[in-house]
Every structure is written in C-alpha cells, then in structure tokens.
Amino acid sequence: MPSVQLIDIAHARSGDKGSHANIGLIAKQPEYYELLKREVTAERVADHFGELCEGEVSRYELPNLNSFNFLLREALDGGGTVTLRIDAQGKTYSAALLRMTIEVTDQELALIAG
C-alpha cells in the first residue's frame, strides 16, 4: 500500500499546557482532512511519541478549520520550569508529529500528487 509522510500533506504548531503538550495538526488542503481523520488517531499518535509521552493522548476534531488538536498528557517531563529536556515546552513536537508516515489508497495518492 502506498504511504505519505504527514509533512507533505499537513502543517502543525505545538506548545505546552503545564506538563501536557498540545499539537494542532492542519490539513494543507481541505480534501486531506478525512484521510488524516482516518489515519492519525489518538492511539497512533501515542505510539508515535513513545517514551516522550507518559500519559494519554486525546484527539479533538475541528473540521471547520480542517484541523485536529492533540493533547499529549505528561509529555514534557514535568513541564516548563521543571523539565530537563531541551524542548521544555514541546515547541518542536509539531514537527515530530509530521514525521509520521500513513498508508493511503492509490486514489488518495493521486489526489495528493495532484
């Protein structure tokens, strides 16, 4: 099955909420929204982040903005001032999510290749 990396079909922004991190994931084109909805589930994001995220991941849908918000609980080693990580506020987690590769159909691949 063909696959695409999220960086090619989405952009994102991330930051902290206390010891949690959030990532806003935005489809580059409205027609990619359903594809992201199917593939980029909360479970896949939790797997993807592995050891970086200790708590649960929640996904919220914002179809009006062709977007999703992911809340990654306990993902910053204690958060802003406590953490020992260089990315204390999860500012680069946006790009970490965009590393994910998802499976697409031939039809979807053709749509993306435009």
Binding site: H11, R13, H20, N22, G24, Y60, L65, S67
Partner: peptide, 16 residues
C-alpha cells in the same frame, strides 16, 4: 488562513 489557524490551535485543550 494558515498562519491564523496555527495560532488558533496554539496551547489549547478541548476546542469546545
């Protein structure tokens, strides 16, 4: 729209 959408989603939890 892209720059505003990114900022809308910045540091939010449940959007509703």
């Amino acid at each position: 729209v892209a720059s505003v959408t990114e900022q809308l989603l910045y540091e939010i939890g449940d959007p509703e």
